[in-house]
Every structure is written in structure tokens, then in C-alpha cells.
Design a protein around this nucleic acid. Structure first.
Lengths: 149, 149
DNA sequence: CCAATGCGCTTGAAGGTTCAAATATTCCGC
DNA sequence: GCGGAATATTTGAACCTTCAAGCGCATTGG
């Protein structure tokens, strides 16, 4: 079995710590600007981009990388705040559609600039365009490899 | 206010989704191999590297990127499983030292190969050495920039 | 000295996520 | 069509994290 060498170790730890810190910061900035956690914001974004602002629960879960169960609970809470609504799916009686409400759209429209600014400031501004490019490629390669097995 | 363009958008989403999936996968593989979540494993690692296998609670919290409160609760649970012990800090009566127990060390030693293999497989194997290098640099730059404000 | 303020950590409750099991519907082979 | 396996989602309890408040020790300034 092969261990990580010094420099791999450094990369791995930088990645691990920084990815947490970055998430925490973006989440904080969004929450203090809008009261909404980043994980819920992502749900609004995905719905807003879908045809008729609707998606099946499981598609949505995959897009935002949540478990089915987590999404069910989260959507239930968001439904209570009138951000999304649930509708039965006509093509498949087992399915449920989550739909962005008008109010949800409003909230999203207010939150978006706050979030975009955070992302720009903390992720893109510190990096050269070459670094951004390689980072994107690296993440896509990792994602690709995660799909196998 | 400047929005993200197409390609920035792609990078950002690839980063966001993949970093979650990667964490989930590493966590799953560690848990199914050892029963321990990755977040607790990280605590054992940091303690094992500290002089006398001890660290102040707040240093440890910073290293693993947990809130103080979260660390208190987690260490309490781990203490119950005899992975760590708490000792008073002699230099500062307010402080508490978390110390790795022998049993904790054992558990760590068994878990480490499982985890290292996951990291190698899912993070390093898919990337060229140039990509690894740039990824490390990019994450360090982001971390640096997060420190300011 | 010793009050006042701050720091390090903990507490308990509220909130969110996971886990295993339940429900309902569809799909498949016969 | 019908029974059985598979799929989509939900449920509720256990578990973990966050949040606000609290406790005790340390430090500082008068």
C-alpha cells in the first residue's frame, strides 16, 4: 500500500481545510445577508433554471447532492415558508414535483447578488485565470472518476 | 455588480458538486471500513501528530475546522468510546487538553490505510501531477485570501 | 489587590441530517 | 391481468451541529 508523500499530504490538507472554510464563509455571508443557508439557496437556483420551474424530487436531490431523505425534509421546511410547492407528478404516480413559488423566485432574486459577490471575491479573485481553468478541469476529472464504482 | 460568466459558472458548479461528492465518498468508504466518520478520523490524525499526542481544544478545533461547540460535543462522544481523554491544562486553568488514548491510536492505525487508499484513488489518481500542483496552489491562495476579512 | 472585562470551554435546547423502515406506484414476466 | 420485484418518496427516531447563554479562570487597569 502506498502512502501519501510530503507534497501530496500538503495538497490534500490544503484542499480539505480550505474547501470547508470556503463553504463556511459563503454560507455565513449568504445567511447574514438573507437568512437563508447556502444549501437551500442551491435548491432555489436549480428550480429556477428548470422548465416551468419544476423538478422531480430525485433529480433535484442529485443536482444539489443531497440524499433523498434530506431533500424531503428540507423541501418540507421550505414549503412552510412558501419558497417551493409540491405537486403530484402526472407521468408517474410515485413521483413528486417541487416547484418554485413566485415568492421563492423573489427571495432568490434578492439573494443572488449577495452570493455571486461572495463567490467572486473568495474563489475567483484570488486565482489567476489559468488556475481557475485547471481547477475546473481537475474537479471535473475527479467527478468523472467518482462515477466509476 | 458583475455576474459569473458561462465558464466561471461551470467551474464553480463543478467545484461545488464535486467537493461534496468527494467528501461523501471518502466518508462512506471510511465508515464502511471502520465505522468512524471522516470528521472524527481527522481529530485522531491531528492528535497523533501533536507532541505527547495532546492539543488544546481550541487549537484542535481550528486544525479540523470545527466550531468550538461542535468539537466539545464530538470529543465528549469520542471520550465515551475511549478514543480520546480530556485532561486539565496546567499552564492555563481555563484550558482543556484532548489526548489520544492508546486505543485511539490503535483505531487510527487501522483506519489510516483505508482512508489513504480512498484519497489516492479518488483525488490523486485521476489527476496529472501538474493538476495536483495547481490545485494545491489554488487552494492555498483561497485560504490566504479568506484570512483577510 | 481587586473589580471589570475577556477568554476558553461547556451546556442544553433547537434545528438539520442520517438511517432504517414504511408506503405507494410502476414495471416485468408469465 | 396478476403477483412479485423494483422505484420514488416519505416517515420518525437517532444522531449530530448550531446557537445562545453560562461558568470559571486569567488579565488588565486603576
Amino acid at each position: 500500500m502506498r502512502w501519501l508523500d510530503e507534497s501530496e499530504q500538503r495538497v490534500w490538507r490544503a484542499y480539505l481545510a480550505t474547501s470547508q472554510q470556503l463553504w463556511d464563509r459563503l454560507d455565513d455571508e449568504l445567511q447574514s445577508g438573507t437568512g437563508m443557508p447556502l444549501s437551500e439557496y442551491e435548491i432555489l437556483v436549480r428550480l429556477s433554471e428548470a422548465p416551468d420551474r419544476r423538478l422531480r424530487m430525485s433529480q433535484l436531490a442529485d443536482l444539489v447532492v443531497h440524499s433523498r431523505s434530506r431533500l424531503t425534509h428540507t423541501v418540507a421546511r421550505m414549503e412552510g415558508r412558501d419558497l417551493v410547492a409540491r405537486r403530484p407528478c402526472l407521468e408517474d404516480g410515485r413521483g413528486v414535483l417541487a416547484e418554485l413559488t413566485d415568492h421563492g423566485y423573489q427571495v432568490l432574486a434578492e439573494a443572488a447578488p449577495v452570493h455571486v459577490q461572495s463567490v467572486r471575491r473568495h474563489m475567483f479573485d484570488p486565482l489567476s485565470s489559468e488556475e481557475v481553468e485547471v481547477l475546473g478541469r481537475a474537479m471535473r476529472k475527479i467527478a468523472e472518476s467518482l462515477k466509476e464504482r
